[in-house]
Simulated assay, not measured.
Amino acid sequence: MTSHTISAATAGTWMLGDLRVNRIGFGAMRLTGSAAFHQGTPSDRGQAIGVLRRAVELGVNHIDTAAFYFSRVRSANELINSALAPYADDLVIVTKVGPARDASGEWVTSARPDQLRGQVEENLRQLGRDHLDLVNLRVMGQNSISEHFGALAQLRDAGLVRHLGISGARPKHLAQAQEIAPVVCVQNRYSLDAPGGDEMLRACAAHGIAFVPFFSIAGKGRESGAVRAEHDQVRAVARAHGVSPAQVRLAWILQQGSHVLAIPGTGKPDHLVDNVAAGALRLTEEELQLLNSIGHSAS
């Protein structure tokens, strides 16, 4: 594939409520550092801003971020604001609330329902927006999210938030949220190596809700990135198409359903181009079965 000519629109589109986005988006977490949040060394600021602008040029109109994506010297929201404001009308910026970090970067107790407004307002301030397009409530081990999601629904009614979603959630959490307000997306960990989210994948399809996997390339490496030796099956499919293993992983994710959106993150311009190009890669049924055997045999 000629990666440099491929637009994010090639992967198709999906509606987040009344907002149409291309199914290949961009996750901003890695812009703040090479590893998890305040660990690692951030990429060059100019390069990070360049990656964001190039993403939009390539047709990306769905960017995932959070106020707690920051390192000692970088804030994902501030980078997005610097790179992309004033924002294009069709650009959808998705944030999440719930987790909390102090100024040194250490995790503190997750937000109470009455603290969620402060987190929403912090995202608004950092991004320079008067409302947030979509806010995901990150589930932090609660059995019930009704009180937290109800607090966000009030902010939606007040006009601070346009649409709501949930993250790190189980089917019971989706049912609880839907009793309170419409849910337009579920953002969960899901990848070739972590197929345990199939139940939520199917539930979202049944309800017409976007399913947005995170760590879809990193797999077991999670925030630290891809740390494993790549599976033979992935390498074989990559060789057959003349693409990278990461592109195969993204293509597999996108072929799990038309409601599935990918938000791969990177601070490197060449990786960005490759990620967007993965939206044009179509895997055969035989290749999908070969790749699915990874998940079925994974512990």
Rank of each mutant, 00 (worst) to 15 (best):
S7H: 14
T10M: 09
T13D: 04
T13P: 02
G17P: 10
G17C: 12
R20L: 04
I24E: 11
I24S: 01
G27H: 05
A28N: 14
G33M: 02
G33R: 02
G33K: 07
S34A: 14
F37Q: 05
P42L: 05
P42Q: 06
D44I: 03
G46N: 13
A48G: 08
A48D: 09
R53C: 07
H62P: 03
H62E: 11
D64T: 05
A67H: 07
S71H: 04
V73Y: 01
P86M: 02
P86Y: 02
A88Y: 02
V94I: 09
G98H: 06
D102N: 15
G105F: 07
Q119Y: 12
Q126D: 14
L132Q: 12
D133S: 00
L137V: 06
R138H: 15
G141M: 11
H148L: 09
A151Q: 11
A151V: 08
A153L: 11
Q154E: 15
R162L: 06
R162C: 03
H163S: 06
I166P: 04
S167N: 04
G168P: 12
H173A: 02
A175N: 09
E179T: 08
V186T: 08
L192D: 01
P195Y: 01
G197Q: 01
D198N: 11
D198L: 03
D198F: 06
C204W: 01
A206T: 12
H207D: 11
H207M: 05
G208K: 03
I209K: 06
V212M: 13
G219Q: 08
K220Q: 04
R222H: 09
E223H: 09
Q233N: 06
A240F: 09
V243Y: 03
Q247E: 12
L254F: 01
S258Y: 03
I263E: 08
H271Q: 14
A277K: 00
L281M: 03
T284P: 09
E285C: 01
L288V: 13
S293F: 01
A298M: 04
